[in-house]
Amino acid sequence: MAARESTESRLAFWATALPPLLWVAVFFLIPLGVIWAYSFGENLGLTGVSISGTFANYARAFEPLYLQIFAKSVFVAGVTTLLCLIIGFPVALAIVFASERWRPWLLLLVMLPFWTNLLIRTYALIAVLRTEGYVNYGLAWIWESASWLKTLVGLEPLAPYEPLQLLYNNFAVVFGLVYVHLPFMVLPLYAALDRLDRSLMEASLDLGAGHLRTLFSIVVPLALPGIISGVIITFVPALGAYLTPDLLGGPDSQMIANVIERQFKKANDWPFGAALSFLLMYATFIAIALRAYLSRGKAADAHGI
């Protein structure tokens, strides 16, 4: 009886697990394996690739030109992550301390952009930032009002407004990346801060600490696992960002994903593109391993209680 039941349950297990496993194998693992193999190959003519086991593609990736772009990607992703943390922490804190009635709506506002296509959101940003965009309209209005006010009191009017060049530069890329990745930062921070025992903050106040001191001595150290999670979860996709630098960036704002895209398309150099892809993936793995290492001590602490 028990044996039959276990056979049945095993059958049910495989019946439900097999289709998704096949899906993952056919559409993810196998293509990934192909790309991995390509990264040790050479171009043959226009379309052919021979997998010769060469490390030349990896060696080429470490040429100064590509290292520079990689370093720049790390820098841009790092600045993005830092800005997300600086903006996201107060936002998460505000949501945690908002009243019960408001909290779900505020969380919804944070998550809402997830439900819109990235491409559409990026085009919307272009409409905001371009020379005839809303930011420049707003600034022009303020400029002209100020100019008019000056003439009212009998002063020389200001020079005509020069629209700010907000688009197609590194500023636009970082701006776009921060906008897109902010929810990735806010949500883990919110989860960590929400778990925090309020009485710990009250105890800090009670013992004479001000709000800032409480924030840095109590809240930040205790929310550290959430902060690390947020940083990694933001940094990893920002490092591999492709669409944002492509649409918002200028000629010097390329990131590593744009180079990879070019290898597969315009340059038609699949083996080199594959090698770059895998290097990016390894860098991501290192970041995730780092998080596991950093949060290992915390997890042990949590089990100790």
């Binding site: 025992d197 710990l200 105890a203 106040l205 004479g208």
Partner: peptide, 18 residues
Amino acid sequence: ANKRPVNMVFQSYAVFPH
């Protein structure tokens, strides 16, 4: 609260875990 001459023992004790 941080300037009052009273101190509190919280129900959960609120001992700083770190």
